[in-house]
Nucleic acid binder design. Structure first.
Lengths: 146, 146
DNA sequence: CTCTGACCTGAAGTTGACTTCAGGTCAAGG
DNA sequence: CCTTGACCTGAAGTCAACTTCAGGTCAGAG
């Protein structure tokens, strides 16, 4: 079973080589090197990359994804059980996310239904609760904590 | 009924003054000026700001939000019907978004359930469909078009 | 053995959505 | 009238998540 080159990993995962190198710098994936300093990936890395993409697509910042991946065993190749544990956590996350969107949708429907659209009565237009976070840089979407 | 200052609009909407000025530069909101060059906002702008925040929170880029808002009547103050039309469109968007996440969640559950987690059989780990977009800059989350 | 396409690196650029800053102007209470 | 807090502007900084570039090295097909 041969190790994957970066080109192969990229092709199979659908993630650009530059992004893979970037993930590696952030410590999200690992590679060994050939004598000539080229990266070689174990098949298991493909799973990590897939996990990263799924999580990122859901809006989890890479740093957090890294933290989650860090909980995988370092020495041995992660087992099915290891992945299942991680996936379970992410399922919770997805559920939360979905719930948030549903609430938003239902509020919006309520507004259309009642035709209120007035600042005073409509919760959609009283966003003081979870908007208005402070700090610099771009806002994270759909913040649910902090 | 007095016009709002930027400070008031900021306080009521929960959006920073700097962000409001930014939105104005992008043409998402409008203001008149006093003799002394200070911004004054009509109450209706509060509604626009709220709409912007809701849409942005769902992941719609400001540019698209601007396009949507541009469909509002320019001359007169938007009516309930105008807003309802816009909201209905956004509801579709939310539905799509929710559907996408649900599909993701169900896939993930499937993986845990069957314990497959293998590249060959598991759709979660065959992301070639909607990942791997090209171009520069950060990826938009939860892409559903293009 | 040669050549061409895959790889390498570090630095710098890009995009979206803002914030921060410096250096000034305005307005309203005392 | 004066002072202080709210506003103004343009330019530059920030942050995440990458990409692009320049200038090299490597590997395997022929």
């Amino acid at each position: 079973m041969h190790l994957l080159t970066i080109g192969e990993l990229s092709a199979r995962s659908g993630v650009a080589q530059s992004a893979l190198r970037y993930y590696e710098r952030l410590g999200l994936i690992r590679s060994t090197r050939t004598g000539g300093n080229q990266r070689r990936y174990e098949r298991a890395e493909l799973r990590r990359v897939a996990f990263i993409r799924v999580a990122a697509q859901v809006g989890v910042p890479l740093e957090e994804i890294g933290a989650a991946l860090a909980s995988l065993p370092d020495a041995r190749t992660p087992t099915k059980a290891d992945w299942a544990r991680l996936s379970r956590q992410w399922r919770g996350r997805l559920d939360e996310q979905i719930h948030l969107l549903e609430r938003l949708r239902d509020r919006l429907s309520g507004c259309i239904g009642c035709g209120c659209l007035s600042m005073a009565s409509c919760s959609m237009f009283n966003p003081a609760d979870r908007l208005a976070t402070t700090g610099s840089g771009p806002r994270r979407l759909l913040t649910d904590d902090q």
